[in-house]
Simulated assay, not measured.
Amino acid sequence: MADSARMSKNSFLYPQSRYYGRFTPEHLTFNANLQEFAQNVSYISSLETGGKLSPEEAYTKIKGLWKQLKHSKKALGIGKNLSQEST
Rank of each mutant, 00 (worst) to 15 (best):
K61E: 10
T29V: 07
A38D: 15
Q16T: 11
A58D: 00
F30D: 01
G51D: 15
P15G: 13
I44N: 04
T24K: 01
Y20G: 02
L69W: 06
L28S: 07
L53H: 04
G64Y: 02
Y20Q: 03
R18I: 14
P55K: 12
Q16Y: 10
L53Y: 04
T24W: 03
E26S: 08
S45R: 15
T49K: 02
L34W: 12
S46E: 14
T29P: 00
G50I: 06
P25H: 07
E48K: 03
I44D: 08
A58H: 06
P25T: 07
A32N: 13
P55C: 08
Y43W: 12
R22L: 06
T49F: 10
F30S: 02
E26K: 07
V41F: 11
S17Q: 15
A58E: 00
T60M: 04
Y19T: 00
L69M: 04
L65H: 12
W66I: 02
L69R: 05
A38L: 15
R22V: 07
Q35R: 14
L65K: 12
P15K: 11
Y59G: 06
S42H: 03
K63F: 00
L28V: 08
K61D: 03
Y59Q: 09
Q16W: 03
Q39F: 08
G50L: 14
E48C: 02
L69N: 04
L65V: 03
Y19I: 00
L69P: 01
A58P: 01
Q39C: 06
T49L: 10
K61P: 00
E26D: 10
E36K: 13
R18D: 15
P55Y: 13
Y59L: 07
E56L: 07
L47I: 02
T60N: 09
E57I: 01
N40C: 04
L47M: 13
S46Y: 08
G50A: 15
K61F: 11
I62C: 01
R22H: 08
E56W: 01
R18C: 11
A32D: 14
Y20C: 01
Q68F: 05
E48S: 05
P15L: 12
A58T: 05
L65N: 08
L65D: 13
K67W: 05
P25W: 02
R22W: 02
K61T: 07
W66Y: 13
E36R: 14
L34H: 13
Y19S: 01
G21Y: 14
G51T: 05
L28E: 15
T60Y: 00
P55H: 11
S17Y: 13
Q16M: 10
L47G: 12
Y19G: 00
S54L: 08
K52C: 03
N33F: 08
L65C: 11
N33T: 03
N31L: 10
I44Q: 07
A38H: 14
V41W: 14
G50C: 11
T60E: 15
G50T: 11
R18T: 14
G51H: 09
S46C: 06
G51F: 09
E57D: 13
